[in-house]
Structures are given as structure tokens and as C-alpha cells.
Write a protein that binds this DNA or RNA. Structure first.
Lengths: 249, 249
DNA sequence: GAAGAGCGTACCGCTGAGTGGAACGCCGAC
DNA sequence: GTCGGCGTTCCACTCAGCGGTACGCTCTTC
């Protein structure tokens, strides 16, 4: 996958060396992470700066605004985001809790949008970020409606235990998935992060089987009762679904 | 700027060949836009697919989710977005009109966020998209607080007339800018798009001079009175400013 | 204040990754 | 049946890319 001996491979190795949490990385750190020769990293990084994918600061390199712009041209995620926004807003306004929009990418969830207010629960999710499928409400919903093969692939793969509540028993998980298909929502109760609860509903194509995305509401243990938002989340998701169906696709 | 004879240059020429409105582009179209040899485009595009920056569909290529993810790792825009979100939400809830967050990039505005409901005014702005500075409220605010040299550079440059209301007289524009500095807000009245009004306020660093970004509220002629949202926008912007100051940077 | 460790930068001759012209097969249009 | 446009494949040439080496700088460390 990661070709070490093409320019593009090197360039992407450098860009991908930036983790979700990193802002600036010095040259030496890039060398360490990519383990490419120093000279090479220096040159390629220079080229990337030239092309506005990296910025060079006093303390190192950082991913540039040019990359941000480019990323938001990605057609599918962008149109999804734009069409979904009004529904996400409604949902936020009704619940005043953190609202997520996510899609499946490989065996993980990628968040397309995350909106919340000042008192939002401190979740590890970030827009553009990834999370495992088995321990998030959005992930479960997406998995529940994914193909059979896809489902077993995830269930038989290693299921990371994120918290004491993470469900890592394939059998139990599978039962949760089929219940999610029945009821139209999935829950997460402190399975990815202690203190967090979550409800999610699928955004389906008109055929009623293919999932496009999922919407969720997240809140902290204590004041937050996920069950009470079940209908709101489901309503938002189905409404978005029919909007997507109407507008081209 | 665009090196035709390095792999990276070619790769970026291909990626940037996708305009804000394009979703899928066939190979032939990419060849036309980049005017690179057909064989080359084919190969490089293939490599880009391999690296998850492009997707290959039946009808051509399209920017992939991998690019979306990568773009949202860009540190400055992302942290700005995350910290701003609660304030943008507040503002939306108060006004129920389209809310923008934008920064200056070269001589244009780049929108970091755009949120709105179902009845939002149909604006040409898009998240990650660009607009000229002289005919948008956010642009004016950003320009008003930019360096003197930057300001004159834009004012003396060609000022595109987008609508009959677009202000293209440098003198008048300059007066609007200094008024924006005084009052802390700038207006746009159908200067970029017929039927749209807008108020914007600057997000300043604690020194009170350097602009980081700007926040705006947009609505349609008729029901929307921008003046009545002036204080709300200003409040959101200054609140975000102090939050940015508090949290690292 | 000398020695050393770690960093960013600059140089430069070798070589294979990248190049792109040419040719092919496949539609759909006329 | 013919033609124009498209996507794909092939292949011999060559220059873009390579990366080991060396330099100068700024901090620590003793």
C-alpha cells in the first residue's frame, strides 16, 4: 500500500505522518515516523510546501490550508455534509447535545460532521476522524446494515476493549446488531469512552437496505437519557434519507 | 507555481482540476483540463487511486474520502473549527439564519464552516470554498483588519463586479473598511449575490489588532434585517476571540 | 568554554522511476 | 460501415529523484 519508492508514496507517507493530534512536526520527527532518509524528507517536504499542502513554520511543518480546501472538494462527503446540515441542526436544537454524522470507511467509522454546544460531552470523536465500529453507536448501526460478509469480517476480527463496558463478545454484538435492524436504532453505553452514552439511527437509501450514513446524539452519563432521543434521531435520519433520494444522489 | 515536470506537480494539477462543482471527471476531461499527455494522466491518476486520494468510478474519477480525512487534519483550520462550533451554534440558534466562519487566504476568503437550517438563503458560499474579499461581509471585515499593504493590494487590484450592487470603487470601499474597524462589524447588501444580505464581525487576537477569522450571519432580502443581528454577531466573534486566546492558540 | 548531540540545510554523481508517443480495442453516433 | 472519442497498454529513453555525505547552527552537558 505505502510505496516507499515512488515520489507520491513518499509524499503521502509524510502527509499521513501527521496524526489527528499533531499540529506541527519538525523535520527530524517526520524522518523518524516515515523512516525515509533525511535528505529525501527535506526535499519532498519542501516540494509539498511549494504546492501548499504543507506550511513551514519556525518549529517545523504543518498541514496547510490548501489541503483543507482540497479535502472539502471531495464530492460524496461534501454533498452529504451539505444536505445533512439542516437536519443535524434541527437535531441539535431539539437535544442540545453533541450530534454526529458518520459513514463507514473500511472497517471503521469516519465522522463527516460533529456539532455541539458549550456544554458538550468531551468525546474523542473529531470531524474527519476515525473510530472503531464495534464500540460506537454509529458504527453499530452502519455495521448492522452492512453486507453479511462485511459484518462477519468485523466480528471475527480483533475487537479492541476500549473501556470495561466495551462489548467484545461477537455473539452479543451480533444480537445487538440484529436488534438495531429491528428497532432502527443502536445504542452505546460507555463502550468507547467512560461517561458517554449515544444513540444512532441509519440513513438508508429508499430501498430500505443500503446504508449511506448514520446520525447520532451523544451525551454524558447522568443528565443524558439516550432513549428519550431515540425518535428524534430516527426522524432526522429518515428525513435525511428521503432528501438524499430526492436530490440526485 | 504549477510544475509540470515533477510527479507531485502533475498529481496536484490533476487533483486541482476538480472544481468546487465537479463530482466525477472522466479521464479525457482531466487530460483536457491539465493538458498533460493522456498516458501520463492515466498513470498518475491510477497512482492517486492507489493512495486513496481519488476514487475510480464507472464514469470517471472523483476526489476520495481519503482526501477528506487528510484535509481535516490541517491543524489550524481544524482547531479553529472545533473551538468555534459552540459559538456558531449559539449564533444560529439565536438567528436561525446561515452562519459562516471564514479566514483570509491570499486575497480571498476561505470558509471554514457554514451552518444553516432548512430555510437558509441559497448562498454560493461553501465550506472549504472561496469568495472574493471586496464583496462579502466576512471579506470586508478581514480586509479591514489586515495589514495596510494587504489592504491596498486588494483595493488597487481588479475588483470584480458580481452584481449591480457590488462596490468596486476603491474609495468607497476603503471608507466602508474604516467604518468596519470603528463599529466592529461590516455589511454586505447584495454585493456578491442578488437577494442576500450579511453582517460580519472579526475574531481578534487579544492585542485587538490581528484578525484570526470572521463570523457572519446571512439572510435573504425581505425578512432579514442584518442590523438587528449586529450585536449577536459581534458577541459571538469576541467570545470566540477570548476563547482562542485562553486555549493555547 | 570545550565537547557533544541533534537539528536543518546544501551538495552532487548515479540510476531507475517516470515519461509520453504510439498503437490497440471498444463503444456509440452518424 | 465508418468514424471520432475514449480508456487502456506497451516500451525504450532520460532526466527527476535519490540519498549518502558533509557542513553549520543551537542547545545541553560536564
Amino acid at each position: 500500500m505505502e510505496d516507499r519508492n515512488t515520489v507520491l508514496g513518499k509524499a503521502l507517507a509524510i502527509l499521513r505522518a501527521f496524526g489527528p493530534a499533531d499540529s506541527v512536526l519538525p523535520l527530524a520527527e517526520l524522518v523518524r515516523r516515515t523512516d525515509l532518509p533525511k535528505g529525501t524528507v527535506h526535499r519532498v517536504a519542501g516540494d509539498l510546501v511549494h504546492h501548499r499542502l504543507l506550511d513551514k513554520t519556525a518549529h517545523g511543518y504543518q498541514l496547510s490550508g490548501g489541503l483543507f480546501e482540497l479535502g472539502l472538494r471531495a464530492a460524496t462527503e461534501r454533498t452529504l455534509l451539505e444536505l445533512a446540515m439542516p437536519f443535524l441542526q434541527d437535531l441539535y436544537e431539539r437535544t442540545h447535545e453533541t450530534v454526529h454524522l458518520g459513514v463507514r470507511e473500511g472497517h471503521e467509522v469516519v465522522y463527516i460532521a460533529k456539532i455541539g454546544g458549550h456544554r458538550q460531552a468531551k468525546a474523542p470523536s473529531r470531524t474527519g476522524g476515525r473510530m472503531p465500529m464495534h464500540c460506537t453507536a454509529i458504527g453499530k448501526v452502519l455495521l448492522a446494515h452492512a453486507g453479511e460478509d462485511e459484518q462477519t469480517a468485523v466480528l471475527t476480527g480483533p475487537l479492541e476493549r476500549r473501556t470495561p463496558h466495551t462489548v467484545i463478545a461477537p455473539g452479543l454484538l451480533r444480537r445487538q446488531l440484529s436488534k438495531a435492524v429491528e428497532t432502527g436504532v443502536a445504542y452505546e453505553r460507555e463502550e468507547s469512552t467512560p461517561g458517554l452514552l449515544c444513540v444512532a439511527a441509519p440513513v438508508l437509501k429508499p430501498d430500505g437496505h443500503t446504508v449511506v450514513a448514520a446520525i447520532s446524539v451523544t451525551g454524558p452519563v447522568g443528565r443524558f437519557r439516550p432513549e428519550s432521543h431515540e425518535t428524534a434521531v430516527r426522524a432526522a435520519a429518515t428525513a435525511l434519507g428521503s432528501t438524499l433520494a430526492r436530490r440526485g444522489r
